[in-house]
Structures are given as structure tokens and as C-alpha cells.
Design a protein around this nucleic acid. Structure first.
Length: 924
RNA sequence: GGGUGGAUAGCUCAGUUGGAAGAGCAUCGCCCUUACAAGGCGAGGGUCGGGGGUUCGAGCCCCUCUCCACCCACCA
């Protein structure tokens, strides 16, 4: 406890030590007392590693939780990971593939064993990294979306929804990923603009009276065409409606139909209709009762429905062949270049194929209504508010949610089929037999599919608290207080959580949704592996050499042509790699960038500045410890406080209320700014300096020195508590040394009371005195700076003009101004005393002169003052105009008019004084 | 096609019911001052994207235009 602090702050020397201390002492567990406050961590993928987005988000949550914990609330930060169906299955499959094994070689059961094995050995990386961030989650309650409890909740929800008819199974056109061999939801499809072609083909009329030209971006689907559509009012084609065309390359005749969906302006105005492979065509097919011909296998190869020559071909090979074949038949009219949106699976990156398959769906309509209302009536509030509109827009146009996935890793659908295909839904085969009173000789097989990962995530706030049991934790911590999340998963997760939670608990999952922005690189580019601009939060904490950083950024590159560029940019940006900044600096940076919901551009310059801030705090503590060394600290004797003591304590109150208000309104940027300014610009720059002359030998009375020491430590101790939610490690380290000095015990600062602004400490008089004194000192320093006088050189100062208040203050503060401004003397000139040629600064009506006889270039000083004259003249013109405008004087509030009058008077007086000063200089 | 956010100092961004434009970093001076050179003290730098309107008064409110980013949507 009494170890001397090192001269330089070294985060690596303290951080892990304190985390182990907090965790092993159970300081993060809910206290069970006080107002409950709970946050559910958005469960990171168990396959994941911590990226900047996590680090940002975790910092916000941790700051909120630590703040409440110190306020004495009963805080639960629930931690856990997500099984991430597709991602995890892909990862383990890839590993197996290295040994040339496919999951089918192993079979379902053994494959799942492998996945669990992987999860148990390697799945903990992200939770270790979470610890590095200082996240004060309750590890004793760590959960996993596929643990027994969550799985039970998933089954229960599925069964209840099915029994109520809100989950159904049916054959629908869904987004099919031909590589992963599974359906995916609309949200998992990303469509990007890509360069393609628009092929124009002639479809001969069956009566040989000519042909129609259809335009398509997907020629291969023509084998599944079951109609050609035109707009009903398109005069070019109206006479053909009802006729048929002979579909080339097949022996089928398909009708020409009319549908107003067709845009006559686009292409030729004729659309080939493939109901089984296009969502629009599917809808049209239903409207016109067209046959739906599926021409693809699950690999997106052509199936046996198509003419023999195309069977078994990949869809893109078939495209080439069909184009060639049609051209050979002289049916290719032309090819236009065309940009189009190509839908790809967000995981696999392959082109999605709309495919007719049997899938499970959640009927969302009855669930979405209360979910919309919960936001409308304010039960759930979005911060920033504009996201509510995004939420409404999506919720009001919601399609049924496809929840089945043709994967192995995930929650297996609790549905069983008999030989006739009848569906029985129950948690097990045994339960199904009982529930549906099935004879023992009826054989049942379980559905092969698993559920969309987001299905279990949707239950996260209550499944982790013990639901479906009516547990005490559920009662106490649900609804949770706030959800902290990125906008990218509002639809995936937030909306679905709201629907499911309202349905099954009758409560909202959270009262507030705090939506933060994306973390981008310094140029505002999205961080991505392929761009090679990814920063790893752990590297910012620990530092990384240029060599290792280059290896990281180029080691597993998909597009090798980017390699050179990435190497160059990285070398230019980080010629020496990354320094070790520590967790606290990283966290403080995130906080200071966390303004209202906009994306943040992460610039390493910022983190460096905040690391310096930590160093500042560190050294301020060293200073205080040195000043205290050898003295005992009694209770604060308020009668012996100096004006500075009263000023800094007063200013601290203002900071405390700013910080409290900022955190409560989720403005961690404002909180960090308030702390930064107070610590650096007031406590360090002024207060510590002001204590030096007082604490010097013979500087002040014993009692005054004691009060100063007590204030020095007291304010610092408060600062450490105030800053702890943002920068937990350094504040713990320092607090452990500082707090005992004033008898503030406690195991950890993380459970010490959070500072609350105390109005009785506010002292406006002291604030005014100190502000005045600061401006006098700054005036002298400015003169010094302008005249290039060395800071150490003692110079005389003369004051003139000013009010009786100025004189009064001088009398009280003179002895402190002299050493701080490095003055040889201070003289107050009377009205009639001559002022020698000097450099002049004005503080209101008070003139600060430093005689410059022989010291400097008179012309330079004159030029400087003339610049001020110009500015003042401008100000006066503006103020004059304003005050001579009856519109202003009549309509503006009296206090505003009064203020402007005051400004005018002051500017005029200043102008007069400067004019005199210039005159003196010229003469002298 | 619809929607959202943004444009303020060289860079990254604050600016809370409209009342004389701010911070950090960068730049330029002067200082190795016994807490801190990861520091101290000073200085320079902005017709707040363009145009119009409301108002005594606009970075802020209204209209319009330009540019950037993102989201949603079924143009083959």
C-alpha cells in the first residue's frame, strides 16, 4: 500500500492484477441490495474474437454498470456467448477439412461432439478478452445459448408457439444457400450492386406468327419459365395476351399473361416468369395459378426436370451453354451491360438461390403488434430517438420469419413425424407420444433441422434468468434496464427480443435501447480484413510491432493483390507499430468518442492523448503523495481553507453534476470531457500549482497547510471515484494508495460511493476570486510570451484602472500572484500616475502593464495593440448598430439588451485604454 | 424508388429551449521550472456545405440545392 509510485504510468504493470483481484473477490456479483439495475451483454459469437465494436460496446456497458454499482444499486451484468450456428459449424468443418474429413464422414452425432469439444477448448478466447477490457460482468452466471437452461427455454417457446398456431411448417420459396445447404432469413441476405448483363432472347410465338423478346439477367432460369408477362395496357403486346409461346430448348408451350407488375419501360416490356426461382415471379405465379417448376438441386445444379444436356450442370455453366445454344438457334437478340443487385449469403458469400423447400416459420403478425405498441407508448425508449422510426418501418412491414436451418449445430427442432408425415411437437419423442396419445407401434422420427441462432438470442433476457421457471432472479432483474447495441442488429435481434419477451413474460425485455455507432478507421472506412485496416483492441492495449501488425493484416488475405497496398498504408500509418496504451486509455478514448449514436472514427492520435491523460493523473497522485509524505491528515478544518481550497472544491461539485447528468443521458463523451477538463485544466494546471507556494516552507500557517493537504488529497480521492467507471484500473491502483490517507477504507474503489454533487460546497465568491486571479496571471504570461521573455525571469507588473473590487482582490491575492507569475513586484498605479511605456493586457477595466523599457521591440508591441484596436472597433460598430436598432432594444429581453450595453461600454473603455497605451509607447 | 444520419479550425469531433464560435490532436514560438518532455507557458487558425426565408438576432428553426455515408425495397 505504501509502495512509491513509479515515475511513469505503466498500464501493463497494474491491469491484470486488479482484474484478478476483482473477479476472485466476487466484486462483480450483484449485491442483492438496492435498486436492481441489469444489463444483458449482447452475447458475442463463441467463435469470435474481440473486435473494436465489442470493445466499444463493452466499455459503454461497463461504465454504466460501474456507475450504478457505485451508486449502491443492485447491479447485474449478465454475460454469455452465442452458439452462432452457421459460423461455428463452418469453422469446425473447415478444421476437419484440413484432415480431409467432411462432417458427413463423421455423421451428425460425432460431428456435434467435435463442435462441443472445440467450444470447450477454444471457445473461451472472447471471454478472456472481455476480461482484458475490464468488463465487470458476473462470471459466476456466465451462460451459453445452447446450455441446458437456454435450450429448455427454446424448446418451451417453440412448443407453445406451435400449439398456438404461431409456428407453422410449409413449402415456401426461401433464400437458399447452395454452399451451406441451408435456408437463411431475408436478413442474412446481402445484396450488392454488381456488373452483369441483360440478355435479350426471342421466344417464338406458338402460331409461328413471330416472336416476343424477353430480357433477363438470369438466362439459366428460362428452363423453368412457365409464362411470359406483359403489362395489360401495353399496346405493343395487348393482341398477344392469351396466346402462347414455344419455350426454346424445351418442348413446353407457355402462356402470355397480363400483369400490371410489369414495367413497360424496362427492357422490352416482356418478362419471362420463373415462379420457382424468383420472389416476384413466385407472387405472379400464385396470382395466375402458374405451374412452379423447380429446376435446381440443393447445390444449385440443374436437376432432372430440364432437358438432358443441361442436367447436372452448375447454374453458371448452364447459363453459358444456354446463351450459346440460343444464339445458335438465332434466338439471341442482343446483350446489354447491366448493373444489378446480386443477393449473396452473408456467411458464405455465394449467390443465393430462391428455392422451394419445406421450412418452419414464425407467424409474426400477432407478435409484432404489441412490440410496436411497446415503443409507441414509451415502455421502450430508443436512444437516440430516431432509431424508433427505423424500428417502426421494419416492424410494420414484417414478413414471416423462416426459423429452420439445415444445419447440425444448433437447437434441434422439437418436432416429430410419423410415416404419414403428421407433425407432433413436444420436447422429446416420449413427450410427444404422451401429448398426442400415440400408440407405441407408431414410429416417429425427429425433424433434422435446427433453429436459426437468432431464435435463441431472442429469448436472451429471460432465458438467462431461469425462465420458464418463475425464479427470483427473473422477478428481480427483469425487465433489464438498458440494452446497449449496434444498429446493425436492431432487426436481427432487438426487434425479435421485444416480440418474444412480450409474448412470454408479458414484460418488455429492456426499458431503454442505447444504439451506438460503428467503429471505423481513422479515415472513416469500415474496418475489414480485406481492406487490411483492422485494429485489434488487444494490440492497442498491449502494443504490437510493425512486423507483427503487417503479418496480422496480410497473413490470411483473400485478395493477394491488396497485399502491397496494405503493407504500404500500414507502414505509413504506424511506422513503429503500435505502442502499448493500456485498457484505460482505450476505454477513455471510446467514451470520449461516444457521442449521440454516430459512427466513430478511431484515430490513434486520440488514444495517445488519453494515455497521456492517465499519465497526468498518475503523476498528480505522485505529487500529492510526496506533499503528504510524513504528515498525518486530520479532518478538514474548513476555517483554515484558502480561497483556492474553496474554489477547487466548488468546481468539483460542478464537475460531479456534469458527469452524473452525462452518464444518465448516455453521453459518455460529455462525462469524459468533464473529467478530463477538471483533472487537467483545473486540478493539475492550477490547483496543484497554487498549493506549491502555500506548502513551501514558511509559505503559510500550519493550519492552512493542513487544510490544503487535506483538500489536495480529498479532491484527488473524489476524482478517482468519479473517473472509475471510465478508467477502472488506474483509478483502483491510485485509490488504494490515496483513500487510506483520509481514512476512506474499503476493499475496492469499485464499491466505494459514487461522488454526488453537494450544493453546500459551491462557493461562487471563491470561484470569482480565482477566475480573476487566473486572468491576471494569464495576462502576465501572455505578455511574456509575446515579448519572448523567459518564464524564469522576474519582471515587475503594474496595475491601473479597475474597480475597487480589483483592488480588494489584489490585496487578498497579491502574495500568491507574485510567485505564480514570477514577478519582482506589483504596483497599483493611481489614476494620475504616469504609466511608462509597457506591454499591456486588459481584464475588464483593469489594465495590466509590464514596463518594457529597453526590453523589446516597441513597434512589435504597437502592431499587436493595433490589431486589438481593429478588433475592438469592429465589435463596437456591431454593438452600436445593434443597440441603435429599435427592433432590438424593444423586442429583445431586457437582460440581453443590458448585457449588450455592458459589452459596448467595456469595449469602448478598452479601446480608449489601448489607444493611450499605444500613445505612450510611441512617445516613450 | 423510399428513409435516416452527416457537412463547424489542417485532422477527429462537441456545441443541451435561437442571445458575441469550442475541445483534443496537429502547427508555430519560448522553456529539461524537483508531479508529469507521455510535460509547462503562450500564439496563430473558422463568411459553421451553397442559396433563400422566419426573427431585433440563426451553427441551431423553415424551404431549396450540392456532396458524403448508411438502411430499406420485387424493376426482369
Amino acid at each position: 500500500m505504501t509502495d512509491a509510485l513509479d515515475k511513469t504510468y505503466d498500464p501493463s504493470a497494474i491491469e491484470t492484477r486488479w482484474y484478478e483481484f476483482w473477479e476472485s473477490n466476487g466484486h462483480f456479483a450483484p449485491s442483492g441490495e438496492g435498486t436492481p439495475y441489469s444489463i444483458m451483454i449482447p452475447p458475442p459469437n463463441v467463435t469470435g474474437s474481440l473486435h473494436m465494436g465489442h470493445a466499444f460496446q463493452d466499455t459503454i456497458m461497463d461504465a454504466l454498470i460501474r456507475h450504478r454499482r457505485m451508486l449502491g444499486h443492485d447491479t447485474l451484468w449478465q454475460v454469455g456467448t452465442d452458439h452462432a450456428g452457421i459460423a461455428t459449424q463452418m469453422l469446425v468443418e473447415r478444421q476437419l477439412l484440413a484432415s480431409d474429413i467432411s462432417r458427413h464422414d463423421l455423421g451428425r452425432e460425432r460431428f456435434l461432439e467435435k463442435v462441443w469439444e472445440w467450444k470447450n477448448t477454444s471457445g473461451g478466447m472472447i471471454t478472456e478478452q472481455l476480461r482484458r477490457m475490464g468488463a465487470s460482468v458476473d462470471w459466476s452466471r456466465e451462460r451459453f445459448t445452447m446450455d441446458d437452461g437456454c435450450s429448455r427455454a427454446v424448446q418451451e417457446v417453440f412448443i407453445r408457439l406451435f400449439d398456438q398456431g404461431l409456428i407453422y411448417r410449409g413449402q415456401r420459396l426461401v433464400n437458399w444457400d447452395p454452399v451451406l445447404h441451408t435456408a437463411i432469413s431475408d436478413l442474412e441476405v446481402v445484396s450488392e450492386q454488381e456488373q452483369g448483363s441483360l440478355w435479350h432472347f426471342r421466344y417464338p410465338l406458338s402460331d409461328s406468327s413471330g416472336h416476343l423478346v424477353v430480357a433477363t439477367t438470369r438466362p439459366e432460369t428460362m428452363l423453368g419459365d412457365t409464362a411470359v408477362a406483359v403489362h395489360p395496357e401495353d399496346e405493343r403486346y395487348s393482341h398477344l395476351i392469351g396466346k402462347t409461346v414455344a419455350l426454346p430448348l424445351t418442348d413446353r408451350e407457355i402462356p402470355i399473361i397480363a400483369d400490371s407488375y410489369v414495367d413497360p419501360e424496362f427492357g422490352t416490356g416482356c418478362v419471362k416468369i420463373t415462379p420457382a426461382h424468383d420472389f416476384n415471379d413466385y407472387a405472379m405465379g400464385e396470382r395466375h395459378c402458374l405451374p412452379m417448376i423447380n429446376i435446381f438441386t440443393k447445390d444449385a445444379k440443374l436437376n432432372d426436370v430440364v432437358p438432358e444436356t443441361y442436367r447436372g450442370m452448375d447454374r453458371f455453366d448452364a447459363r453459358e451453354k444456354i446463351i450459346i445454344d440460343l444464339e445458335a438457334l438465332n434466338l439471341l437478340e442482343k446483350i446489354d451491360p447491366h448493373t444489378l443487385k446480386v443477393p449473396r449469403g452473408d456467411r458464405s458469400g455465394v449467390v443465393i438461390e430462391p428455392l422451394l423447400t419445406d421450412q418452419w416459420f414464425v407467424a409474426v403478425e400477432t407478435l409484432s403488434k404489441p412490440a410496436i405498441e411497446a415503443v409507441e407508448n414509451g415502455s421502450i425508449r430508443f436512444v437516440p430517438k430516431q432509431w424508433e422510426n427505423t424500428y417502426y418501418a421494419w416492424m410494420r412491414d414484417l414478413k414471416d420469419w423462416c426459423i429452420s436451418r439445415q444445419l447440425w449445430w444448433g437447437h434441434r427442432i422439437p418436432a416429430f413425424y410419423d410415416d404419414a408425415g403428421t407433425i407432433y411437437v413436444a420436447e422429446s419423442e416420449e413427450a410427444a407420444r404422451k401429448k398426442y396419445s400415440l400408440a407405441p407401434d407408431i414410429s416417429l422420427t425427429q425433424d433434422e433441422d435446427v433453429l436459426d441462432t437468432w431464435f435463441s438470442s431472442a429469448l436472451w433476457t429471460f432465458s438467462t434468468l431461469g425462465w420458464p421457471d418463475d425464479t427470483d432472479t427473473l422477478k428481480r432483474y427483469h425487465p433489464t434496464s438498458v440494452l446497449v447495441t449496434g444498429f446493425d442488429i436492431i432487426f436481427f435481434w432487438v426487434a425479435r427480443m421485444i416480440m418474444m419477451t412480450l409474448k412470454f413474460t408479458g414484460e418488455v425485455p429492456f426499458k431503454t435501447v442505447y444504439v451506438h455507432g460503428l467503429v471505423r478507421d481513422a479515415e472513416g472506412q469500415k474496418m475489414s480484413k480485406s481492406k487490411g485496416n483492422v485494429l485489434d483492441p488487444i494490440d492497442l492495449i498491449d502494443g504490437i510491432s510493425l512486423e507483427d501488425l503487417l503479418e496480422k493484416r496480410t497473413g490470411t488475405l483473400m485478395q493477394p493483390q491488396m497485399r502491397e497496398k496494405i503493407i504500404n498504408t500500414t507502414k505509413r500509418q504506424f511506422p513503429d507499430g503500435l505502442q502499448s496504451y493500456g485498457t484505460d486509455a482505450l476505454r477513455f478514448t471510446f467514451c470520449s468518442l461516444a457521442s449521440t449514436g454516430r459512427d466513430i472514427n478511431f484515430d490513434v492520435g486520440r488514444i495517445e492523448g488519453y494515455r497521456n491523460f492517465c499519465n497526468k493523473l498518475w503523476n498528480a497522485t505522485r505529487f500529492v503523495m510526496m506533499k503528504i509524505d510524513g504528515h498525518t491528515l486530520d479532518e478538514l478544518d474548513t476555517t483554515h481553507m484558502t480561497v483556492f481550497d474553496r474554489w477547487i472544491r466548488s468546481s468539483l461539485q460542478a464537475t460531479e453534476s456534469k458527469v452524473a447528468q452525462a452518464i444518465e443521458s448516455y453521453r459518455l463523451d460529455l462525462a469524459s470531457q468533464a473529467i478530463y477538463e477538471f483533472v487537467w485544466n483545473e486540478y493539475c494546471d492550477w490547483y496543484l500549482e497554487l498549493t506549491k507556494p502555500i506548502l513551501a516552507d514558511g509559505g503559510a500557517s500550519k493550519e492552512t497547510q493542513a487544510a490544503t493537504r487535506r483538500t489536495l488529497v480529498g479532491v484527488l480521492e473524489t476524482i478517482l471515484r468519479l473517473a472509475h467507471p471510465l478508467i477502472p484500473y488506474i483509478t483502483e491502483e491510485l485509490w488504494q494508495q490515496v483513500a487510506p490517507l483520509i481514512g476512506r477504507g474499503g476493499d475496492t474503489v469499485s464499491k466505494a460511493p459514487y461522488p454526488i454533487s453537494d450544493a453546500s460546497e459551491v462557493d461562487t465568491l471563491a470561484e470569482a476570486d480565482v477566475e480573476w486571479m487566473k486572468s491576471v496571471i494569464v495576462a502576465v504570461r501572455t505578455i511574456r510570451g509575446e515579448l519572448n521573455l523567459s518564464p524564469g525571469k522576474e519582471i515587475p507588473m503594474m496595475l491601473a484602472g479597475g474597480t475597487s473590487g480589483d483592488r480588494d482582490r489584489l490585496a487578498r491575492l497579491e502574495s500568491l500572484i507574485v510567485p505564480l507569475a514570477k514577478l519582482s513586484e506589483i504596483r497599483f498605479q493611481d489614476v494620475n500616475d504616469p504609466i511608462p511605456a509597457s506591454s499591456t493586457q486588459l481584464i475588464g477595466q483593469l489594465e495590466v502593464h509590464v514596463p518594457i523599457a529597453g526590453l523589446i521591440d516597441v513597434e512589435a508591441e504597437v502592431t499587436r495593440l493595433e490589431k486589438q484596436v481593429k478588433k475592438l472597433e469592429g465589435d463596437i460598430r456591431g454593438l452600436d448598430g445593434k443597440l441603435n436598432n429599435p427592433g432590438f432594444t424593444n423586442k429583445a429581453p431586457a437582460d440581453v439588451v443590458e448585457r449588450e450595453r455592458g459589452r459596448l461600454a467595456e469595449a469602448e473603455a478598452q479601446l480608449a485604454k489601448i489607444t493611450v497605451a499605444i500613445h505612450e509607447l510611441r512617445r516613450g
